[in-house]
Amino acid sequence: MADPMKIRAQMKGDTAEIRVLMSHAMETGQRKDNAGATVPAHFIQAITVDVGGKRVIQGQTSTSVSRNPVFGFKVKGAKVGDKVVIHWEDNKGDKRTDEAVIAA
């Protein structure tokens, strides 16, 4: 079971700034452990962001993203109090959904 995300969402003028920190190993499949064995690839491959019930981002990620990654988005037209729902899925089928509300 994956650990929760940390989501920050705040209005800056007419734009909502959303930042999310995800807890994930993001293994490339190229790294070797201390014993010399290859660590299997394990990475987030799909991310969606919904704001106020509407899908604003649907994206794919790969192994070039760091461990415990941070993503930032700017969304125009959102307003204080809108619900932000962020969802990710990784290549092993693990997934996680977290929510936040846009602050003033």
């Binding site: 490339t28 790294r31 070797k32 760091s66 461990r67 415990n68 941070v70 307003k79």
Partner: peptide, 26 residues
């Protein structure tokens, strides 16, 4: 009323450079 558009998703992935761990260990 809500006109939602997204801007530059990739450009703001600030932390994505902290990827030393992803290099082969050797």
């Amino acid at each position: 009323k809500q006109r939602l558009s997204t801007l530059m998703v990739a450009a703001v992935m600030t932390a994505s450079f902290a990827a030393h761990a992803q290099q082969p260990a050797k």
